[in-house]
Write a protein that binds this DNA or RNA. Structure first.
Lengths: 305, 305
DNA sequence: AACCCGGTTGAAAATATCTTTCAAAGGTGA
DNA sequence: TCACCTTTGAAAGATATTTTCAACCGGGTT
């Protein structure tokens, strides 16, 4: 049983081409120590690792062949051989794209201009990783469910609540009935009302925020279609999710909390979800968008005289 | 002597990068019949061949393993294994050469994968534009004011309110007193309380949202340091702003409302502001960040696996 | 035509590489 | 502390690659 589950988790993400570094970061928390060492080596020097045999890589990382193979499996490849091929591809890919020098962590004494550059670069990277790692099949399924939903409930607390509100705002603009819940009690209270044909969306970076999992579980039990937007596709929240949308996990530093890049990543996913829904409900979405724009016009001062 | 030595001696030791097709053509005449068949297959479909084992390629070309290895040697690789790695790299390289179509607008009938790519690309572009257009002097001044402020009030409505909340959340995490106001009446009511040494931040993409301008004006009149984060540096809001931080305005389409990219841009500015403040208040910010992280830990379920 | 000979080819053995198994080491909670 | 579960690597087992070597082919000579 557990074995089957693991298998399906690995299988749902087909051999990644360029999203490897992102995937390593996403999966790192669920790895054991030695596997992390291997993953680190692989992400750090794809070209170098591509030149190594299992034995070589095992020695380099101070682990065993078995661990190397296990890591390759966790990253979604059938075995080390295939990981190695992907690595070679990645290396070639990196060769063409220039790697800028702003990759360093943000330090306390960085001048403000550096902060801007590094932050912008990091967020761009996060976007690229997220896009590369997003499962379009899952996304498509989520879009289909949301587009035809009777109502859409969204759960998120902390930084994720803002993402939930953003989505709710946008969905409301195209005439869909959606609500973002922040209060865990009210969220559960509302979730009880859901039934088949409704959609519930949980947003949690950690994948293990109880305040968000609980309402999603209730919605799941009531027969609603459930969607999880999380950075931990192996986290508890996915238990109750019909569709899982994975956000990327960027490296964080002391000054740059993880919330920052997870938010960027979540927003991209949410935007994609929104656009997808807008496409499917174009007939009603387009006029609704235009109308909401019109309605807001008088809230602005007439003209910059 | 500018001519590349490596290239002229390519037949010998160095493994070919991407010039494989050319090399095949050059060396074809000196190949035997079955080797030509192998070389042809390899040059014709690098990606496909990279997926095959020696035996597979031998069968595909109707030859033997030995011939495949011989061909690999002739092409300059130590053996088939290395040819295969090069092939994988070549395939990835070719793959990357096609992506200029993402610059187009998002259409109603775009497949979901295109939506993801275009959206990610657009938001990356927005980030780059914002970073390039941000006035670091103004930012520095804003940071200085915020870092020493008695309290920080933030005004934003609609999509911008989420950005304001995001900033308030983060500032709270490093121990600063800040509040994000959404209700225009309450915002004004609170603004009246401000005085010199306080900071007021208005966030509005259009630069002319009355609900946001009004409280900023009040704060300005009361002597607080005022900051405007806007996409229209010539808009009415800047009248009452001591420091103006400009966000970028990306082109929008019917399906992609301006709110999307303005939000991305605003968030980057807000993040920069936050990091800047965190740097200046590092002594208190660092422990506060750590503490808030600790406090949240128990809100997650203990074991993710 | 029959024969020889250098070059070409593939079957199978030899080797290298990858994968699986399994028991010991390490850690965790009762 | 002990029992239990997880993690780990050594070695056995399975595949893939390389090498070996004898058969084969084609053309020129007797």
């Amino acid at each position: 049983m557990t074995h089957d589950l693991k298998e399906s988790f690995n299988a749902d993400s087909p051999p990644a081409p360029a999203a490897l570094a992102a995937k390593v970061r996403t999966l790192a928390p669920s790895m054991t120590r030695s596997m992390q060492r291997v993953a680190e080596a692989v992400a750090g020097d794809p070209a170098g690792c591509a030149a190594l045999t299992v034995t070589g890589l095992a020695e380099l990382t101070g682990t065993s062949e078995a661990t190397v193979v296990r890591t390759a499996r966790l990253l979604g490849y059938p075995g080390y051989r295939d990981l190695r091929l992907a690595l070679a591809g990645l290396a070639a890919h990196q060769q063409s794209g220039r790697a800028p020098s702003v990759t360093a962590d943000i330090a306390v004494d960085d001048p403000i201009a550096d902060v801007v550059a590094k932050l912008a670069y990091d967020e761009q990277q996060t976007l690229a990783d997220t896009a590369a790692g997003l499962d379009t099949v899952q996304l498509g399924a989520a879009v289909a469910a949301a587009a035809t939903a009777r109502r859409i409930d969204i759960y998120g607390v902390g930084a994720s609540s803002l993402v939930g509100q953003d989505l709710a705002q946008k969905l409301a603009r195209i005439g869909l009935i959606s609500h973002s819940h922040t209060d865990p009690h009210l969220a559960v209270t509302n979730a009880v009302q859901l039934r088949s044909g409704d959609v519930a969306i949980a947003i949690t970076h950690s994948g293990s925020t109880v305040d968000v999992i609980e309402p999603l579980r209730v919605a799941f039990d009531r027969g609603a279609t459930t969607i999880a937007i999380t950075g931990r596709p192996d986290g508890p929240v996915t238990q109750y999710a019909d569709h899982v949308l994975t956000t990327s996990t960027a490296r964080e530093s002391e000054l740059r909390p993880a919330a920052m890049s997870s938010r960027t990543s979540q927003l991209l996913v949410v935007d994609c979800l929104f656009i997808g829904v807008a496409q499917r409900t174009y007939e009603t979405a387009a006029p609704a968008l235009a109308a909401s724009y019109e309605a807001l016009a008088h809230r602005h001062t007439p003209r910059p005289r």
